[in-house]
Design a protein around this nucleic acid. Structure first.
Length: 474
DNA sequence: CCTGGAGTTGTCCTA
DNA sequence: TTAGGACAACTCCAG
């Protein structure tokens, strides 16, 4: 036998099914499974409370699948891995490749360091359906527009068929006590637990249950229903995918194979296309490693964003006076998640109406979202702000009243997250300050007391944004 | 090299 | 009431 023990370094691939690094290691040697929490907690790019909460529970679920042999460490992976390898006479380390630019930098350093100590490093392709370095235009440069990118992806070979659980797994067991999940202290000073726990169940098994229930109940009307936050048509798989409890490959093939039983072609390709957008976010980040903090379109570097602590706080706490914005922001705060269309609505409100820097909004999302993902989060914020590739044109400014009437016509979503408005007739719930005094009284609302007046005038702020963004073109 | 069609997610105004 | 065009001409991309 070439190797007696192989370290499998789990990162954002917290599953045992369809896990190439784990699968390959199990076939050759005893496995020493480890997780390293290597965040620089002083950095604004360290993962937020929402992510930490999910991670904690996801690791617990993984611990169960690994017969309790997962060992957890805090610190720099570049130092920890060689030290561990030496301590246990490990001759090989396996992990699945990341395409997140920050993680890639770390992985590269780890690889070099391990090779220095003559330890075999094996990296596997796991996280993306289509390799970012393979999809290029005829002139050899990367795509900047989604549709041609995705068309090119579809022309290539089908994504890998998911791997089964390895047949014979033998763990190298040592005492875990000192290296328990609790030792990572992911729930220390983390206040989200009692808010989030009733909304989610992290873990591999639950990810698969979620997918099955989505295919059965949500896929049929996905293309249309996904726009309505009160409907159950979205998959809500994002956090499961982010932490790799389920792979994009598993979803891709499962939907293609068994989706037809419940949904037509249109809805199936619409769902697959959303996986395509995730691919495109990673693709653009891969080719532009600084995308998470730097405008993709340089001319936006000159843009004079507004600074208003008061407006920012109103947005963050869901007190803008626009019910659809407030409902969405409170959904984020109470559940760690926000419906896709609502993300666009609140982002447009922050970036265009309030004219606050997209990075400020991205940062708030980053702190709270259970699905906070460097690629998707920054790509989509740049898209809304207009500074991304193939982004929304500057004159596309969501009107929070129109959006509420269109996509939450009965006001159910608003009523759920802004309960103080729940007694208002749906006719007035999108813009309560326009309701007659009597109606407000009957619903028990005094504007400015029970619910805020709008913090900003829509028309004025829209015109201001149009002017400022237009000036940027010259 | 030139050309022409296309581009996730909207809003507002006009006829 | 509703459908269609303007918004600003832009860049991207394929043939």
């Amino acid at each position: 036998m070439k190797h007696e023990i192989i370290i499998v370094w789990f990162r954002r691939d917290l599953r045992v099914l369809d896990n190439p690094a784990f699968h390959a290691a199990a076939a050759q040697a005893k496995i020493l499974p480890i997780y390293i929490f290597d965040q620089d907690l002083k950095s604004e790019h360290a993962i937020g409370d929402g992510s930490k909460w999910w991670l904690h529970h996801s690791l617990q679920s993984l611990q169960g699948s690994l017969d309790g042999s997962l060992r957890c460490y805090i610190g720099d992976a570049v130092k920890i891995l060689p030290k561990l390898a030496k301590e246990y006479k490990v001759t090989a380390v396996h992990f699945n490749k990341s395409y997140d630019s920050v993680e890639m930098k770390r992985d590269h350093a780890v690889e070099l360091e391990l090779q220095k100590s003559d330890i075999e490093v094996k990296m596997f392709d796991e996280s993306l359906l289509f390799s970012p370095s393979d999809i290029l235009k005829k002139d050899g440069t990367p795509y900047k527009v989604f549709t041609p990118f995705y068309r090119e992806c579809l022309k290539g070979p089908e994504p890998r068929i998911p791997l089964p659980k390895p047949r014979n797994i033998e763990f190298f067991t040592t005492k875990v006590d000192k290296h328990s999940i609790e030792s990572l202290q992911l729930l220390e000073d983390n206040s989200v637990e009692n808010r989030f726990e009733k909304h989610w169940k992290p873990g591999e098994l639950s990810a698969h249950k979620r997918l099955q229930s989505f295919i059965k109940n949500g896929l049929e009307n996905y293309a249309q229903g996904r726009d309505f936050p009160a409907l159950k048509n979205v998959s809500r798989l994002s956090a499961h995918i982010h932490f790799g409890e389920i792979s994009a490959h598993q979803i891709w093939h499962e939907v293609k194979q068994n989706g037809h039983e419940y949904a037509n072609k249109k809805n199936i390709s619409c769902l697959l296309k959303e996986l395509g957008w995730r691919e495109f976010s990673y693709y653009v980040l891969y080719h532009n490693p600084t995308m998470y903090h730097k405008n993709l379109q340089e001319k936006f570097d000159r843009f004079a964003w507004r600074y208003s602590k008061k407006d920012l706080l109103a947005w963050q706490t869901g007190m803008t006076g626009y019910p659809i914005v407030d409902a969405s922001m409170r959904e984020l705060f109470t559940t760690g998640y926000m419906h896709n269309r609502m993300r666009m609505v609140v982002a447009s409100f922050l970036v265009k109406n309030l004219m606050i820097d997209w990075r400020t909004g991205a940062q708030w999302f980053w702190q709270l979202l259970v699905d906070a993902d460097l690629a998707s989060n920054s790509f989509n914020w740049q898209w809304v702000a207009g500074c991304g590739y193939d982004a929304a044109p500057y004159f596309r400014i969501f009107n929070p009243i129109t959006q509420a009437k269109k996509f939450d016509p009965a006001g159910e979503y608003i009523a759920q997250f802004v309960p103080e408005l729940s007694k208002l007739p749906s006719k007035y719930i999108a813009a309560p300050w326009l309701a007659p005094e009597q109606v407000l009284k009957k619903a028990g609302i005094e504007m400015g007391v029970d619910y805020p007046m709008p913090i900003i005038d829509l028309k004025e702020s829209r015109d201001r944004a149009l002017g400022s963004f237009k000036a940027l073109k010259k």
